Simulated scan of single mutants.
Amino acid sequence: MRDRHLYLLLLPGLLLILLFRYAPMYGIVIAFQEYNIFKGIMGSEWVGFAQFARLFRSPDFYEIMRNTVLISLYKLAASFSLPIILSLLLNELKHLVFKRVTQSVIYLPHFVSWVIFSGILISFLNPIDGLFNAILANFGSTPIDFLGSSAYFRSILVISDIYKEVGWGTIIYLAAIAGVNADLYEAARIDGANKGRQMWHVTLPAIRPVIIILVILSLANILEAGFQQVFLLYSPLVYDVGDIIDTYVYRVGIQEANYSYATAAGLFKSVVAMTLIITVNKLVKMSGQDGLW
């Protein structure tokens, strides 16, 4: 009762979580059914793990799993390292106006939707009149269908994701760096440490807990290769390297009305994510670091 006003402030957020996160979990039931929209959940036939067996027996399953994991790992490697490096460099800028302009420029792509960003990218990579092919033509090269080539598609996904999201990733690291005790830098300078040594021996150890937490959260999304980005950029020409679980589920499960099959694939992703986040958090705590809980 003493904190009732605080609980009232908390109530809208809790209601949103219950409504959009926990209430829909009732629908997981259809992953174990042969769901029929006319019969509903209560009237549909119960088939147990048949939908999961169908998923694992699918000739496309291992290919889409490989694509999903590879694309996610490439993005994870970039999203883990580049924002840290960029944050360290931005933190060393002394000209405030230049620093703020640079931060704004690198943050800006994050606020552009993938629909718009993909449209721009497609225009640039168009094999007929795209900017990149126009540049190549000036050097005597033949046009290249970048988005229709298996050799380039994954690289385009990773590079475009880096360009769009790397600035946003620096926000948390810059906030963590701002909280580092200035006395530590002063002591390092007295000991003769240059800027590189200060970053390595002061800044990075100080923000290590933040890095660990973000890595754990990133590993939980290892099967989230970016549905919007892939869906807007891929085509049947690059299914062999670009088709991921989400696009496969959308194409086979949603468009063909195989709702139980789509739910089984989504539940499989969730179980893998839960297993990864628990395992990595346990390993981090065993190493003596603070985990998520």
Rank of each mutant, 00 (worst) to 15 (best):
L15T: 14
A23H: 12
P24H: 10
P24K: 11
I28W: 11
V29E: 12
Q33H: 01
I41K: 11
S58W: 12
D60E: 12
D60W: 04
V69T: 10
I84P: 03
S87K: 04
L90H: 01
E92S: 10
V97A: 11
F98C: 08
R100K: 03
V101Q: 07
I106M: 03
W114H: 05
L125T: 11
P127T: 04
I128A: 11
N133K: 10
N138D: 06
F139Q: 10
G140Q: 02
T142L: 12
L147C: 11
S155M: 06
L157N: 15
S160T: 15
I162Q: 01
E165D: 09
Y185W: 02
Y185A: 04
A187L: 00
I190S: 03
T203E: 00
L204V: 09
P205F: 15
I213Y: 14
V215W: 00
I222Y: 04
L223P: 01
L232K: 05
L237Q: 12
L237C: 02
V238F: 01
I244M: 02
V249L: 11
V252E: 06
G253A: 06
Q255N: 15
A264M: 04
T275L: 08
N281D: 14
L283Y: 11
D290N: 15
G291R: 09
G291E: 09
G291C: 14
